[in-house]
């Protein structure tokens, strides 16, 4: 029975407060900044999705953008080309990307490590090629443009209002992941990640678990895709080219296998390209360097690094407190 630590609650409250105030601070009409805030949301979800797979289950996906694309395009095609209500289109996007996740699950059952990584890269390439070439379905190289913002009971949501919805979705996803990793399923995931033979000897059906996690991970990435489609109101295959690497960077830099890691990673790495606009052409290289430095100097990511610092500081403070008390005690004797 895990008790939620006080520091966790405080961090969460602070983060939520900042997230709630952010649109007001940047200005509700500042669509550029609001869109960046929304990008935190969909990247946050994407990282949670990859983290379930990579951090908790030990399955590598180097083509996670594929699931995001599948979700985004399913939504875009249904909503824009066929006039399907946004909610139904979003649910359909979840279902389709869940199914795509199951495909990845099949790969996970047969392949490991580098072979799985190659397969997922190939899967991403295949999905983007299909999207570019099957113009009748996806709009092809022209993409899908002018995807509508959501309209609730005849009221068209403004950008900042959509941001709050996206934020609510992120919080739900975070709660989902929190409960999932602390459940029987989550324990089995971590066990399989650490010692697959032992986990199956303890009664965990490894393959079934891989399918389940891949499906869920795919669906969450698809959900991120829906938010992406609505935020940018435009889709084209090449927009996703850097997303896989970016997501991987966020998850690794933040600290995979922890719930907080991906959130910190998202905040850090989504901010980076905005700050590094002048170097936009070299972004992939910068990500590479950041990953290498992280793996060497902070193997547990930003989250692991911060936690270690906090633990050290509190241990020091405790030692300081204990010392005068001991001295006083000795005098008393």
């Amino acid at each position: 029975m895990k008790k939620t630590a006080k520091s966790t609650v405080i961090t969460l409250v602070v983060l939520i407060a900042v997230a709630l105030l952010a649109p007001v601070v940047v200005g509700l009409k500042n669509n550029y900044m609001i869109n960046i805030l929304c990008s935190y949301c969909y990247f946050g979800i994407l990282c949670c999705s990859l983290n379930l797979l990579l951090g908790y289950t030990g399955q590598i996906s180097m083509g996670h953008a594929a699931f995001m694309m599948i979700g985004a395009y399913t939504y875009g095609i249904l909503n824009k080309f066929h006039g399907v209500h946004f909610l139904i289109a979003a649910l359909a996007a979840l279902a389709v990307s869940f199914a795509a996740g199951l495909l990845l699950g099949a790969a996970c059952c047969k392949l490991n490590a580098i072979f799985l990584a190659m397969t997922t890269v190939g899967f991403y390439k295949a999905v983007s090629t299909v999207i570019i070439n099957e113009g009748w379905l996806t709009g092809g190289a022209n993409g899908i443009s002018a995807i509508q913002k959501w309209t609730v009971f005849g009221y068209k949501l403004k950008n900042w209002q959509f941001y709050y919805i996206a934020l609510a979705v992120v919080l739900l996803v975070f709660l989902f992941c929190y409960r999932m990793v602390n459940s029987k399923t989550g324990r089995a995931m971590r066990a399989m990640c650490s010692a697959p033979i032992a986990s199956s000897a303890m009664g965990v059906n490894n393959n079934q678990l891989k399918f389940l996690v891949c499906g869920i991970s795919g669906a969450l990435a698809g959900l991120a895709g829906v938010l992406y489609a609505v935020t940018n109101s435009y889709l084209s295959a090449d927009m996703f080219a850097k997303v896989s690497v970016q997501t991987l960077t966020m998850t690794v830099v933040g600290g995979m296998g922890t719930l907080w890691g991906p959130l910190f990673g998202t905040l850090a790495i989504t901010t980076l390209p905005e700050l590094l606009r002048p170097f936009a052409d070299h972004l992939d290289g910068i990500y590479g360097v950041v990953i290498i430095l992280t793996v060497i100097f902070m193997p547990n990511g930003i989250y692991g690094f911060v936690r270690r610092m906090v633990q050290k500081a509190s241990a020091k403070a405790k030692a300081k407190k204990a010392q005068p008390a001991n001295a006083a005690g000795k005098k008393g004797e």
Binding site: R179, M180, N182, K184, S194, I197, A198, V204
Partner: peptide
């Protein structure tokens, strides 16, 4: 072959996997 990334009690809880009757949906909804 221990689950090195987990606490001791969690290791033993994985041992009880087949005797624990809680599905994912139930856990998500608490």
């Amino acid at each position: 072959l221990l689950f090195e990334n987990m606490s001791i009690v969690e290791n033993v809880m994985v041992g009880g996997h087949t005797r624990t009757d809680s599905g994912l949906v139930g856990s998500l909804l608490r």
